[in-house]
Design a protein around this nucleic acid. Structure first.
Lengths: 222, 222
DNA sequence: TGCGGACGATGACTAAAGTCACGGAATTCC
DNA sequence: GGAATTCCGTGACTTTAGTCATCGTCCGCA
């Protein structure tokens, strides 16, 4: 994805005209990472505006015992670490390239600060963007405190399925576990449990949703 | 607390001069609630700028089985429901008066929208405010997914204690449970467990922190 | 002064989730 | 084609947390 296309998708920049986006793009440099490489670590100072151009970036937190919790996997056209960008603080999580040949546009903080001066529309966009993020966070918080693993897996499947009732699990069970805050074995067991109950069918890594309604009711906690 | 004093403490307004705050105050009306009365419910549309003037407001979410999770208890000088205020969406949680004679300043959305037009500094403040909120949320998320109840109680005690090593638990075990996502019995047991381990001493509702270091290490997950 | 309500403590039990250990299928890489 | 690696599935077990029931204390109030 080229710079302009990517910048157009960033929630707090999309309102800006094409040539302004070109200007923003020209202020940054690209960084290419291979799978697993660190983009930034928790507590690092802000690198500036970061936009994924190619590949994917995993944003996560790792606790003292090595257990990982994934906040999101960002695809081309997504910005990363907005929070630090807007408040100037350090990163609350870490980010790693999830694929080889992952490419990220980096506009350093001083340049970005000048942009926000020059284009006040960025501030409006920033508010919207932070608000969206925060609502997502609240949902995650709700899920993790008052929903069972079963409910979280059901929700994960429904979100993955979107319109189609048949789709492939692209992530490993370990990764799914990191998304919803549990471990591989529990993911495996729960998936098969849902199959036993007739809500889904599993054929290898292909999932067929048989009873969307039932699955939905499991997802929102019985 | 009078209107100006309260508005001065609101994170996204404090940068404004006194007379602007007076203007903002003059655009709102007060609402007085008795303990337990509803200010707004989850999914309600935005009421506008809300600032606690007297008493306290509990912001929480209640799941289908009646289990409550407290996001915060807001004191005079705090604003409530900022997220909905800034993005125009509905409330992600509910709010109730926690005390009798609780008083809230309400500036309706259209009036507040005019203010943001007139004073662009509000937008800057909004960003800071949302960022602070979001960092708090990330901490809560981390705590609830990768920390045990034991760790969360230890963190709660340390936060309550601040500098003093001796203090009173003002909240009931049930309320403490709602803060950290568990129930009254578990709070009680865990508190006594920490006592058995010699990190704190309990005398009625008075807590004495004996081993701050150990407690801190429990709080950040062993 | 004695009754009721709110709250805390605690034992016993159940349920849910995490850990450990193993086996086997699929994939990649010499 | 075989070794190494990665991943899935599962049984058995442990740990942690939540539920239920009961009791005692404190406090307010009629």
């Amino acid at each position: 994805m080229n710079r302009i296309e990517a910048l157009q998708r960033v929630l707090f920049l999309k309102a800006l005209p094409q040539d302004t986006l070109a200007e923003i793009g020209s202020l940054g440099r690209d960084r290419v990472l291979s799978a697993g490489e660190v983009l930034f670590l928790e507590k690092d100072p802000c690198l500036g505006l970061l936009v994924v151009l190619r590949g994917a970036v995993k944003v996560c937190r790792i606790d003292s015992r090595g257990m990982e919790f994934i906040f999101g996997i960002e695809k081309p056209g997504a910005s990363i670490g907005d929070l630090a960008l807007f408040d100037g603080g350090n990163y609350p999580a870490s980010a790693f390239a999830a694929l080889d040949e992952t490419c990220v546009l980096i506009v350093p903080p001083p340049a970005f600060a000048r942009l926000t001066q020059k284009y006040p529309a960025i501030a409006t966009g920033a508010i919207r963007s932070l608000a969206v993020e925060q609502r997502r966070m609240i949902e995650m918080l709700k899920a993790s405190t008052l929903q069972s693993v079963r409910a979280r897996i059901a929700a994960y499947l429904l979100q993955r399925a979107e319109k189609d009732s048949i789709f492939a699990l692209t992530e490993t069970n370990t990764t799914i576990g990191s998304h919803i805050g549990t471990v591989r074995e529990v993911v495996s067991r729960t998936l098969h449990l849902l199959e036993d109950e007739g809500m889904v069918r599993l054929e290898g890594r292909t999932v067929i949703i048989c009873d969307r309604v039932a699955l939905q009711s499991v997802a929102d906690g019985r």
